[in-house]
Design a protein around this nucleic acid. Structure first.
Lengths: 212, 212
DNA sequence: GATGGGAATGAGTCTCGATTCATTCTTGGC
DNA sequence: GCCAAGAATGAATCGAGACTCATTCCCATC
């Protein structure tokens, strides 16, 4: 809050910069990217239309920035925690937890992620795909390590497992977002990983693992 | 293909009607709904812009029709097969298989489903959510039956399981769609259901099922 | 060959919205 | 108090695209 800090009003996250970002996430979550005129974002942020362009190159740029920032936080949080969290199972659970928590942290952002990130619009597709790949990569590594350590079966592709895990969590999140239901991120994460590791089959009926 | 069939040119699926639908799916898969001018769809279908409006009420209406039709086929196919398919596990596997097959059946339609159906645009959201609910419902029923018959664990919510299964499959499909990779629907379905039923944990490491 | 009616056309209308930029406001230094 | 420089404004520009409708085409019937 010193005078020095305030010296980067345009290129860095100043006051209005953040207000515009937040407003954009709100409006886009409500109406969708293509139904959100810049003028609506400006109004919500309490600035003039033109002001937006002092802080962002274009409408695209706002959305890109919002998504990048969110993913950035996600990665950082996971990486930091991993330093003190060894077990493969625990790591998977932590990823699931942080992923599921996003709903509670910022509901609008969660909506935006579920709705706009799938867009085929090239400018979204390119970088959102990049983020997904990184996420999946992270999970695959954990799975592979678990396989090497003998914790996980080796007859299932780590890629398939990673996608299954991501998809399962993402869908739970998505359904919560759309129905507006809340949930306990920690408990849900535990449940998902439980299913992923142990399956839903009862001991009695498990007849397929023999072909390992 | 008889002359009689061709007698419903406007209200039913006549020649141009189908051509417009197909063209729309193609174009929208390539460019996204909001970046697909009606004129582009018309050109692809080889008709004039105005002709579109002889067969569809609006641009929205085309997309809605395409999605509804696809889901309709899906449900019908599953329902029919279920008449001769008893086991809960086999039924889940069949659902997974048909779901995964959609990529092979019509790649463009699969892309469209993955990208446009999540749209927050109200007109899409309302009915696509409805379809999702129906799908999940179907899976839940199978799961519940499996639980009653003692095939599946009873300490996991059928809703959570259904979402996990749907999400896992959908994500695999999605990843295939975006990377352009092909896969064997039947084999992949078996793998997913294998993971869902048996989990990825090895016997040695399974330490959580005791709390049943 | 003429004719009536439905199908098809595509140029034109009308609205909306991203971006620009001439103008106005603010503020820190004198 | 005055001034210059940066920040902010919002009216105006400009293009895009959904939809309309006056006109033309097609063809079955006579």
């Amino acid at each position: 809050m010193t005078e020095v800090e305030k010296a980067a009003p345009i290129s860095g996250p100043g006051d209005k910069y953040q207000r515009i970002l937040d407003a954009a996430v709100e409006v886009i979550a409500e109406r969708g990217y293509f139904n959100s005129p810049v003028s609506a974002i400006a109004k919500r942020a309490g600035v003039a239309d033109g002001t937006i362009y002092l802080y962002f190159k274009s409408k695209d740029d706002i959305l890109r920035t919002a998504i990048d920032t969110t993913f950035g936080r996600f990665y950082k949080q996971v990486e930091e925690r991993f330093r003190n969290l060894e077990g493969a199972r625990e790591q998977l659970e932590y990823i699931a937890e942080v992923h599921l928590e996003s709903h509670g942290v910022n509901r609008n952002m969660a909506i935006l992620m579920q709705t706009e990130m799938r867009q085929s619009a090239k400018f979204i597709a390119e970088f959102s795909h990049h983020h997904l790949v990184k996420y999946i990569q992270m999970v695959r590594e954990v799975v592979r390590r678990g396989q090497q350590e003998g914790l996980f079966r080796q007859d299932v592709s780590d890629g398939v497992v990673a996608h299954c895990m991501f998809g399962a969590i993402d869908e739970l999140l998505s359904s919560a977002v759309f129905t507006g239901r809340a949930y306990d991120a920690k408990a849900t994460a535990r449940q998902v990983i439980d299913v992923l590791l142990n399956g839903i089959g009862t001991r009695a009926s498990m007849g397929r693992s023999e072909n390992v």
